[in-house]
Design a binder for these strands. Structure first.
Length: 277
DNA sequence: CCCCAGGTCGTCA
DNA sequence: TGACGACATGGG
């Protein structure tokens, strides 16, 4: 068990449950058990302290800080966003302590290809099935978990086998991208070095990866915040509040107005809209 | 049984 | 370009 004192606002509940990540459980004591690339953690917030346990506590503190983006100055970012667009005041107020989670890129690619025209429980189910068959088994607090496999582990998975993971028509998309990564046609580390437009172009050259999916991959997998993944929710808000009715107009507006914080703004909008109802 | 999901593709005009 | 249906799967 490690303790981590928080020096700024952190809303653990919203950050975990808002749809950025899929493989987590809420426990009876309000803590969360999360499968976090190379380990399983259990995390709980008490006042200004994070209590974290893991099957592997090596470097755990840094891992948590990195994963939950705790070192970034979100207060300052929120101020900047407000200066750019004062209409976002109520949205930002509802998102204090919300962070963009840093996920492992390969897992993010697979997750968001599966996410297209799909529901969260179904996405979760497919990710679990893939992990159960190909991921490393971990025992933590007397329960069994499976880490998400690496691309090398999935090298020999056929299209038909992907179908057994209940991914539906996305089977061939997953197969193609896994093959491409294994052949180094797509180098997942190189994406870090490319600028956002080049990365989007590279990712969208794959079938099943469009503007929304590629933007999510860059946002959650690569911390490229100058993307704007437009989905049905955000489309609705931007139409109502800004009278922008096409994806192109929305992206253009976000680029010009929110610049390098576009990804954070869109995540705030998504979160705000889901919570208000 | 119909509808739809944090979309994308293929196919037409 | 722009619109429109199809697409696997599961839940309401």
């Amino acid at each position: 068990m490690i303790k981590l004192e928080l020096s700024n606002d952190f809303n653990l509940d919203d950050t975990v449950t808002c749809g950025q990540i899929f493989r987590f459980d809420k426990e009876l004591d309000n803590s969360y058990t999360i499968i976090l690339d190379d380990r399983v953690i259990n995390i709980k917030k008490e006042d200004n302290t994070l209590l974290v346990e893991s099957n592997n506590e090596d470097n755990l503190k840094n891992k948590i800080i990195e994963y939950f983006d705790l070192d970034r100055d979100y207060d300052n970012i929120n101020k900047q966003i407000l200066l750019m667009d004062s209409k976002l005041k109520k949205v930002i107020d509802s998102c204090i302590g919300f962070k963009i989670i840093k996920q492992y890129p390969f897992e993010t690619i697979m997750e968001y290809i599966i996410s297209s025209n799909n529901r969260v429980p179904s996405i979760r189910n497919s990710l679990d099935k893939i992990s159960e068959k190909y991921g490393k088994k971990v025992t933590f607090k007397n329960k069994i978990y499976y880490l998400f496999p690496n691309y090398i582990d999935l090298k020999n998975v056929s299209i038909d086998e992907f179908r057994t993971f209940k991914v539906g028509f996305r089977d061939k998309y997953l197969y193609d991208v896994v093959q491409s990564i294994n052949k180094n046609d797509l180098n997942i580390d190189e994406i870090y070095k490319l600028d956002t437009d080049k990365s989007l172009e590279k990712l969208m050259s794959f079938n099943g990866v469009g503007p929304k999916v590629s933007s999510c991959i860059l946002l959650f997998g690569y911390q490229k915040f100058d993307v704007f993944p437009v989905d049905t929710w955000v489309k609705k808000i931007m139409k109502e509040e800004y009278n922008l009715d096409t994806q192109e107009k929305i992206i253009k507006y976000a680029k010009e107005n929110y610049k390098e914080y576009s990804g954070i703004v869109i995540q705030y909008l998504f979160h705000y809209n889901r919570n208000k109802k």
